[in-house]
Design a protein around this nucleic acid. Structure first.
Lengths: 111, 111
DNA sequence: TAAACATATAAATAAACCTTTATATGTTTA
DNA sequence: TAAACATATAAAGGTTTATTTATATGTTTA
């Protein structure tokens, strides 16, 4: 019996539109860094800005994109706006991408 | 002890470049369909073209992209060129994207 | 209310990308 | 060798996207 974490339905050859859309959201290094930054709890925009060294308008822009993809949730508290990862599964996917990239490069350079 | 399939190193806040690059390769519905088409063994370009109903130059173009990302391997046999998925892990990632998309939408419409 | 601060939005630019149409390259067969 | 077939490449068009700079909106504090 498979464990719950591994439950992954074989995608039918259609409706890959949503998967492609999500992949597009992950297809930017800055967005990945932002996702990891807000993966362990709420974090204000200014905090992300200083931690990552990305300009404030650019962080806001990418957060808007991540929100559009439903990958982050937003919460306003006074003048601060806190963002956090909406579903932890995205972190496993990012880790998977990272591992796969390393594996592919290892195979590549092995010949 | 974690099972091998779940071995996924926590990505460090840097070097997410490779992961972003891979995500970009998955950020197109046609490429996802092509990947699934060549996931169970070698398949010639013409076969992919007729199975998916995508034009031959477009299939060739996307295959070139997938090859650049090391996601498929190529093998020539006479006039035919066979492609297949280079690493099965990409299928788990696609399945994960699919599941996550479904989950996010379910949460979304639940409120 | 004015100043200071946090965040969002807009405009503009340049680069990247998907797709189509047309053509080239390479391989087999008649 | 010419024709037919399989695949790749090139050029072109239109759209999307990442980033910067400038400014607007919204909230707190003096």
């Amino acid at each position: 019996m498979r464990r719950a974490e591994n439950l992954a339905s074989q995608p039918s050859e259609e409706d890959l539109q949503a998967a492609a859309f999500l992949a597009k959201s992950l297809a930017d290094e800055n967005r990945l860094r932002i996702l990891l930054a807000v993966s362990k709890g709420k974090k204000a925009v200014s905090r992300i800005v200083e931690e990552l060294g990305i300009s404030q308008p650019l962080v806001s822009h990418h957060l808007k994109e991540l929100k559009r993809a439903l990958l982050v949730t937003v919460e306003r508290k006074g003048p601060f706006v806190y963002y956090q990862v909406a579903d932890q599964r995205v972190l496993e996917i990012i880790a998977g991408l990272n591992d796969l990239a390393a594996g592919l490069l290892a195979q590549r350079t092995r010949f």
